[in-house]
Design a protein around this nucleic acid. Sequence first.
DNA 1: AATTAAACGGGATGGTCGTCCCGATTCTAT
DNA 2: ATAGAATCGGGACGACCATCCCGTTTAATT
Lengths: 184, 184
Amino acid sequence: MSRPLRADAQRNRARVLEVAAETFAAEGLSVPVHEIARRAGVGTGTVSRHFPTKEALFQAVLFDRMEQLVRRAGELAEREEPDEAFFGFFAALVEAGATNKGLVDALAGAGFDFVAAAQESRYDVMGAWSALLDAAQRSGAVRADTDMADVKALLTGCVDRERAAPDPRARERLLSIIRTGLRP
Amino acid sequence: MSRPLRADAQRNRARVLEVAAETFAAEGLSVPVHEIARRAGVGTGTVSRHFPTKEALFQAVLFDRMEQLVRRAGELAEREEPDEAFFGFFAALVEAGATNKGLVDALAGAGFDFVAAAQESRYDVMGAWSALLDAAQRSGAVRADTDMADVKALLTGCVDRERAAPDPRARERLLSIIRTGLRP
DNA sequence: AATTAAACGGGATGGTCGTCCCGATTCTAT
DNA sequence: ATAGAATCGGGACGACCATCCCGTTTAATT
C-alpha cells in the first residue's frame, strides 16, 4: 500500500480526469495528450505521471462511463418488462455513443483494445446487455435467432447516424425500424 | 495537353495503383505511402510524382471502385423489381465494405472528405442508391417515412458486423432483420 | 551510337505526437 | 520556520510519416 496522494496531486489528478473526459467525449481519441494537459492547465509531465500512457488515461475515463452503463442495465432489468428493458438500454447506448466520441472510437477499435480490459463484470457493458437480450428472447419479444453481434451492428449504425446529425425524430424512426425488424 | 507518359512511367503508375488498391482494401487508410512504394517495388519519389499526395492516390483508387458500384446500381435498376434492386444494392455495398477497409474508413470520415469530391454523377454512389430507394418506396416495398440517412446507418452496422467476423449466414440473418424493419 | 529530357530511388526535411527526464516549486510533518 | 520529499512544468527525445529534392539512370529520338 502506498501513502495517500498529496493534496495538490489529488486536485490535479481529478482535474485532468475531468478535462480528459470532456475532451475525449467531444473529439475522440485522436486528441493529443499535450492538448489535454494544456486545457487542464497543467504540464504534460503531470498528466503522464498520473496516467503513464495515453491508454491508461483513456481507460480511466472510459471505465467510469462503462460502470454507469452497467448499473443502468441492472436497473432496467429489475424495473421493466424484458422488452422495454432491452430496447431501453439500446436507446441509452445510442445516447451514450452520440455524446461520446471516445466511446465510439473505442467500440470501433480505432485505438486501444478496451474489450480485453473489460473483463471485470462491473465494466462489462456488452455482457450486461447480453443478459437483457436473453431475457427479451425468452419472453418472446425478440426473435430467437439473433445474437449480440447482430444487435451490436444495429447499434453501431444508430450511433453513427446520431453523431452525423442528431435528430430526436429520426432517432425514434430508426429505433422503430429496428424494433420491427427484431420482433419474431 | 501533355505528351503521353514514357513507357516505364506508365507501367509504374499502373503497378502503384494496383498495389495501393490491394493495400488500402486490406489495411485501410492508415498504411504509410512508403509501404505502398516498397510493396510496388518503386521509390517513394515515384509514387509521389504520379500522385502528389496520399489523398490523390487514395482518391484514384477509390473512384475506380465507386464507378463500378454506380454502374452496378444502374444495372439493378433496369433489370430487377424495385424491391430486389434496392436490397440487392444494399447487399452489394455490404460486400464492398467488408472487403475494402479503405472504403469503410472513407465512409466513416477517418481521413479525407471523399463526399465533396464525389459530385460527378459517375462517382455518386449514394445518389444512385437514393434513386433505388425512391423507386422502392414508390412501389410500396419500403416504408415511405425513411430517408438515406436511416438506410446508410443500417448499412454501416452491417459493414462493421461483416468486417468483424465474416459469416454468410449471419449476414443473411441481419439483412432479413433489416428487410423486415424497412417494410411498410 | 549519341543526345537529351523524362523518370527513378531513396535520403533529407519538417511536422506531429507519446513518453521521459530534471531542475524548480510546493506541500507536509516536525 | 525549516528540512525533505513529493510533485510540477515543459522542454528533450525518439518514432513515425507525408512530402520534397537531387544526383543517377533509362527510355525515346535522331
